[in-house]
């Protein structure tokens, strides 16, 4: 299933946050969205998954979601959004309970996604016992459990420290390599975008417009931090963004 954003304009009151944004997300690819803070990239993600309604334009699903998909558009949130009163297993089972699955079928899904995210031994742990990286892995496991057509990741690594971020990036790449998923990955971290994106959409500062979409011409599995070609792309992205980021930084928030 592909996803398409068609001429999306979005306003909060008089303030235009997104201006005529069009994007294609073909199946099996990860599209990274970067931009200076306040450019509306998280808003765009909420619009893509139907958590908010655009003022103008529309989001289209093209084709049928894959077989066995319980929730076509599935989010991974920056702050994990785990229920603190449920165990790791309970948090994953939460999103399966409304679908009338048989018990053993649900258990099989839970075991599978927990194994894939290396959480099987922590099934019974409560979120407060887990590190930030583990919490985000639980959230990723929960997203995988509904077999999504498109994963919408909202700065999933921003709340984590640098080392954990590296580890989780490797995990995400390993997950994609094993079973390619379609993803929209919002981040303000250029290194993450260059590591994980098949294509990178650069938004301008508010009102957010698509400035450019850049293709990263390496297979996800071949990418390493510090590869000269990737550094070149990262530098190019930074040059594109620097002036905007500077201007965005000096803007007053409450205009």
């Amino acid at each position: 299933m592909d996803l398409r954003a068609q001429n999306i304009t979005h306003c909060y009151g008089d303030m235009v946050v997104l201006d005529d944004v069009s994007l294609e997300i073909p199946a099996g690819e990860i599209l990274c969205i970067i931009g200076p803070s306040g450019c509306g990239k998280s808003t765009l993600l909420r619009l893509l998954g139907g958590l908010e309604q655009p003022s103008d334009g529309q989001v289209l699903q093209l084709g049928a979601p894959p077989h066995g998909c319980l929730n076509p558009l599935t989010y991974v949130f920056q702050d994990f959004a785990l229920l603190p009163w449920r165990t790791v297993e309970g948090n994953v089972s939460l999103v399966l309970e409304d679908h009338g699955l048989e018990r053993h079928a649900a258990d099989a899904i839970i075991d599978d996604v927990l194994t894939r995210t290396k959480l099987y031994d922590f099934k019974a742990a409560l979120p407060r016992q887990l590190s930030g990286g583990m919490k985000q892995r639980v959230a990723i496991a929960r997203a995988l459990a509904v077999n999504p057509a498109v994963m919408l990741l909202d700065e999933p690594l921003s709340a984590l420290d640098a080392q954990t971020r590296e580890l989780l990036m490797d995990d995400l790449i390993a997950l994609w390599t094993r079973q390619p998923f379609t993803g929209v990955y919002v981040t303000h971290n250029l290194a993450e975008a260059v590591r994980l994106g098949h294509r990178i959409a650069v938004l301008s500062r508010r009102p957010g417009r698509v400035r450019d979409v850049i293709k990263v011409p390496f297979a996800l599995g071949d990418r390493r931090a510090g590869l000269p070609e990737m550094d070149a792309i990262q530098t190019r992205l930074w040059e594109m963004m620097r002036d905007e980021a500077l201007a965005a930084d000096q803007e007053l928030a409450d205009v």
Partner: peptide
């Protein structure tokens, strides 16, 4: 609210959101 938003994003029914997220919370 982010927990409620999460419930909605996974397509949980209104009743499930109240029973499993709002009340325990």
């Amino acid at each position: 609210r982010t927990l409620i938003r999460m419930g909605q994003s996974f397509g949980l029914s209104w009743m499930s959101i109240v029973r499993k997220i709002v009340l325990p919370g």
